[in-house]
Design a protein around this nucleic acid. Structure first.
Lengths: 249, 249
DNA sequence: CGCGCGTTTGACATGACTCAAATGCTGTGG
DNA sequence: CCACAGCATTTGAGTCATGTCAAACGCGCG
């Protein structure tokens, strides 16, 4: 099954442009999901100036590691990332998955060191926003400040929902909720909401949802038996979003 | 056992002042923990102007409920609060406990509606910060903006740690971690780090840590048998912080 | 093409939940 | 100020969902 089956033609084109060029914010396909939303074009031009558009990160490559000095926020341009923190004896919690237009590193502002390890799940690229410059710019650009606050607030709200999931939901509810959250995010980005790739491993999913890998695998198999999904390796197709929603608890 | 055993004399005095008067930020005992930290006195005076110092909330009284229109951030002045969100069939997740100097409502900025129910755990009071005014003020006060971002970032980092706790820790590790987190916060506020009141119910603790009430009760009893703590109703005394730390996972 | 990791599936163990009941505490009204 | 009602807490017994261990499979990467 070719990967292109899972993306809209529109997105294919845009994704290619994104990868090939250091395009400016106003021409970026992620514009309406991203930080610059609502800025005037003068402001936008200034913002453009401070953004470092990095080369690609390869699968498994780190964006930053825990305790690194905080310098920049990152916005995913293409691909996907995970962040994780570790307990003793090697238990990992995947604290988030990040897709194009989403911010990484917001929890580092406070201590001025990164609080997690961030790793690419596939070939990916980011826009780097040096925080000093961003702050400087924010002094004359109230809308930028509001955007930043809004971003942080959104992530906070998402994390609170995840706390509900981790604390109160069964394995089945966790997975149904997770799949629908991905579906929504892909839809927002112009991908199909029913057919997409799970770029993270089953282990990553397990460590995100507070489950054992085996449990994730079993529940996905059960969902497939119940005709809720069709899953082939990393490719998944949601067959019955209604029933999945009903399963979310 | 009188409640005053559990607070330092210093704090008793300050707490009384806080309750009795609508004192300005610069005279507030929470100054160094709170938003105004680092503002110049001109700026501080302006901030003071927009703060509404509300009367008390009684135990169980709501500060706001889910889906209420977002208007203000709140900072706890005295007492304590909890925030919670609900899954279907009445399962509640307590997403946070809030003590003097801590912010409530930061996750509401994004959707402009409150995302949780906030309830007082005891007689409590707050400083209300109307967000519109705060934004207006922020335009000419970069430090205020940084402070706000830092606050949000701190809560975000805390929530990520809680995700690790909820996803990966055993019941014993959860409770040890929780007690030490309270200890640290009380210490930061000039309370004893070893003797304090659990203002929340066992049920609240359970719903915060993703456990059943019975499990919380059992583990606390076990901790007491093992001479880690002495607990009498809501009053707790940590006897061996070192061992508790070792139990955190 | 083959090795190794990721995934799936099965069998079993167990930590935490549920149900139940006794006890204790708190707030309220007489 | 006391007594009672109702809720909170504790403790016990038994169950169950999920974790752990083990093994086979197969896909993907080098």
């Amino acid at each position: 099954m070719a990967q292109s089956n899972n993306v809209t033609p529109l997105f294919n084109d845009l994704a290619k442009i994104q990868r090939d060029h250091n395009i400016a914010c106003q021409d970026c396909s992620l514009y309406r999901l991203c930080l610059p939303l609502g800025l005037h074009s003068d402001d936008l031009a200034q913002l453009d100036q401070i953004i470092k558009r990095s080369q690609s990160y390869k699968r498994r490559q780190s964006l930053f590691t825990v305790d690194n000095k905080f310098t920049s926020l990152y916005v995913v341009r293409s691909g996907s990332f995970k962040t994780m923190i570790s307990a003793s004896n090697g238990r990992d919690q995947v604290t988030g998955f990040y897709f194009p237009g989403e911010f990484i590193g917001l929890d580092a502002i406070h201590q001025q060191t990164y609080q997690s390890n961030a790793k690419a799940l596939e070939s990916s690229s980011v826009c780097e926003l040096p925080f000093e410059n961003l702050q400087e710019l924010g002094k004359d650009m109230p809308k930028l400040q509001v955007q930043l606050l809004t971003r942080l607030s959104k992530e906070l709200a998402g994390d609170k929902s995840l706390m509900l999931l981790l604390g109160k939901k069964t394995a089945g509810e966790k997975l149904a909720t997770f799949l629908l959250s991905l579906s929504k995010r892909f839809q927002d980005r112009g991908f199909s909401s029913t057919e997409f790739q799970l770029t993270m491993s089953r282990t990553d999913i397990a460590n995100h949802l507070g489950l054992a890998v085996e449990t994730v695998s079993r529940i996905l198999s059960r969902f497939q038996e119940d005709d809720l999904i069709v899953i082939t390796g990393k490719a998944i197709s949601l067959q019955n979003i209604g029933k999945l929603k009903a399963l979310c608890g």
